[in-house]
């Protein structure tokens, strides 16, 4: 706080330099890797870069840029840094509860249900959806698409392997999400990991997809994009909302993260609040 108030000329100058450096870094990263972080929240990117700089003992952002341009390994590390993969099965159980109680009845009659998990990270969310669909007897006609820009996490997601240590939390989440069976029916374990039942896994198509640069690839009845847009600036959020709008069927559902809201987006009036409390919106 103090720093902000006693902003002397010197620090202002460095701030400007840093801004320029950061822009150059992101531009460079985009040009070499094709991953576009230029419209991500600067504050978040800043922290990730700072973090990397500390670990690698790099003094300036330009130094980071240099390594990005010349060291592919480092570039990958930085890309990984930028993709925050925090996720859980049945994360915010209330969401899944409401989804089960209110959204599912709306989908039941469809001949095929296409669901897109945009920014699926290590897959826990889409696993949860698969379980929910299984329990609702809809898995046979559900097509679950899970995409992320990060190939590494996608591979993890494809494997269906979960850390054993997290299963307790997941069990609790599952229960409070209104699960109708025993959670243990969906996995087997060995001493290290839990393995999602292959029959569930095989219902899911995983693919690499970047929300910033890639196009719509199907029409979906449900799109879940939870805790991804928090990393985007408003402008980019609007752009992605546009993409979702294109990719949603009429009366399709859009699920956002707990702390996200469509209320202030440009497209807010194209959606009705279906379950505002758990951020489920419905295309008009």
């Amino acid at each position: 706080m103090k720093d902000l108030i006693w902003n002397n000329d010197d620090s202002q100058e460095t701030n400007i330099t840093e801004t320029i450096e950061m822009e150059l870094l992101l531009e460079g990263l985009y040009r070499v890797s094709g991953f576009d972080f230029r419209q991500y929240m600067r504050s978040s990117i800043q922290r990730r870069v700072q973090n990397r700089m500390q670990i690698e003992q790099i003094q300036t952002i330009t130094g980071v840029l240099e390594k990005v341009l010349h060291d592919p390994m480092f570039m990958n590390k930085l890309l990984n840094d930028f993709s925050i993969n925090v996720t859980e099965m049945f994360r915010n159980p209330e969401f899944f509860k409401v989804f089960r109680e209110k959204v599912i009845p709306e989908l039941k009659e469809l001949p095929e249900i296409r669901i897109w998990h945009a920014g699926c990270a290590t897959g826990e969310e889409v696993y949860s959806m698969a379980i929910l669909m299984e329990e609702e007897g809809l898995i046979h006609k559900a097509k679950l698409y899970a995409t992320d820009m990060n190939e590494t996490v996608l591979n993890k997601a494809r494997s269906g392997i979960l850390p054993l240590s997290k299963m307790r939390t997941y069990t609790k989440n599952y229960m409070s999400s209104g699960g109708t069976r025993a959670f243990s029916e969906y996995y087997t374990t060995d001493g290290h990991f839990a393995y999602l039942k292959p029959s569930l896994l095989k219902q899911i198509s995983f693919a690499q997809h970047n929300l910033v640069t890639d196009q719509s690839f199907n029409e979906f009845h449900v799109i879940l994009c939870r805790n991804v847009l928090i990393y985007f600036t408003t402008a980019l959020q609007n752009q992605v909302y546009e993409l979702f709008y294109e990719s949603l069927s009429t009366k399709g559902f859009l699920g956002l993260g707990d702390k996200e809201s469509i209320k202030f987006a440009e497209c807010a009036d194209q959606y009705e609040e279906f379950a505002e409390l758990v951020k489920i919106y419905r295309k008009k």
Partner: peptide, 12 residues
């Protein structure tokens, strides 16, 4: 949102 992002970052 920023807070959520921060908390996720922190967790990571």
């Amino acid at each position: 949102e920023e807070l959520q992002a921060q908390s996720e970052e922190l967790q990571t």
